[in-house]
Amino acid sequence: MSASRLVKEFSKGLWREIPPFRLVLGLCPALAVTTTAENGLGMGISATFVLVCSNGLISLLRKVIPNEVRVACYIVIIATFVVCVEMITKAYFFELSESLGLFIPLIVVNCIILGRAEAFAKKNGVLLSRADGLGMGLGFTLALTGLGAIREFFGAGTLGLVFGEQVFFDQPFAFLQQAPGAFVALGLLLGLMNLVGGSRGR
């Protein structure tokens, strides 16, 4: 296992296969919680934590888990880490747990996490799987924070993560705060990424 392979598996999640855009996985949390940059960041960090832990543990146990019940085992492992996150946010980051609400338990069924377990962790070593999880998680965090920042800045006229209480517009484009606005913002970002990164063909 070379260092370049490690870097490659880590970095692919940051741009080439960045989750909600390129893989188009995990859209439910990506659209639902990103009304502010702060919520996007919180959701991203929670998902990253679960992804790194579950990828590592699933990879470690990949020889022990029988093929027939592997999905059940993955779900138990993922659900355990998610409940950990839920308990920790409720005890130490109460405001965040309030604003993310239902979406923390829903990380269990976030397709990215089960997807990485199935597509990567069950075939690769612990270190590689963790690198993959960290890369994918950071990509997801980056995308959610970016999407949240755009929707918050143009939709509500604030950017609480950086500027605190400061209000930039009196009459923001409130459409972006609603669910249809989330789809439009995601579509525009996806289009922009394709424009910059060239066509999707390989």
Binding site: L61, V64, I65, P66, E68, V69, A72, C73, V76, I77, A79, T80, V83, C84, M87, I88, K90, A91, Y92, F94
Partner: peptide
């Protein structure tokens, strides 16, 4: 299959029980 799934579920239960002991009081205060 049985042993693997039961083992994972048992370990998960123990871990969560332990964490609950640590965080329950703070969560209730919040």
């Amino acid at each position: 299959m049985f042993v693997a799934l039961a083992g994972i579920a048992l370990a998960s239960g123990l871990a969560l029980g332990g964490l609950h002991q640590v965080t329950a009081q703070r969560a209730a205060d919040n």
